[in-house]
Amino acid sequence: MSRLRKQGLTRRALLSRAVAAGGLAVAGAGFIAAPDAAWAVEVTAITEHQMATLLQMARDIYPHDRVGDRFYAIAIKGYDSAEHRAMVAEGIEMLDAAAREAGFDNYLAAGWEAERVAILRSIEDSVFFQTVRGGLVTGLYNQKEVWPIFGYEGESFSQGGYIDRGFDDIDWL
């Protein structure tokens, strides 16, 4: 299984052995990482290219500009497993083939979100796309660390509910 970790790799160390992957993440030997090295995902069962493509795909399916890549990485890291290896390989190949049809080297080579979304639309009825999309609904939005970005406050019982904490504090009506 892959794992997500904060690591102290320097930007230069990463870039020195990395292949740029869509400008989003950096893929290297056995991992992909943020260009600023704030986070990295080790990949063991699938390829760096596949993981980087999955990451971009996740962001294109549910784009939230205030939600960092590390949350999307958490949402898809489960695909780095022997169990999913074949599905991921076939799915990413299908996606890259669709990108080539559209005139790009591969999915990550399409620079604009609108271009990538058009590619995704062409495969959206596939089991692969629907599996990734469906998994993100919980994989992304059920991360408690994501909730504050949307203002959602989560559990409230332990704090006594909102009876004294603003259940009726609206001030603009």
């Binding site: 399916i61 784009p63 994501v146």
Partner: peptide, 20 residues
């Protein structure tokens, strides 16, 4: 609905920026 269920039920199956 909380955020997790809003994501699941607002427009099931929808994706892309119109949704997000």
């Amino acid at each position: 609905l909380g955020l997790p269920f809003m994501a699941a039920f607002l427009d099931p199956g929808a994706w892309g920026r119109e949704f997000t």
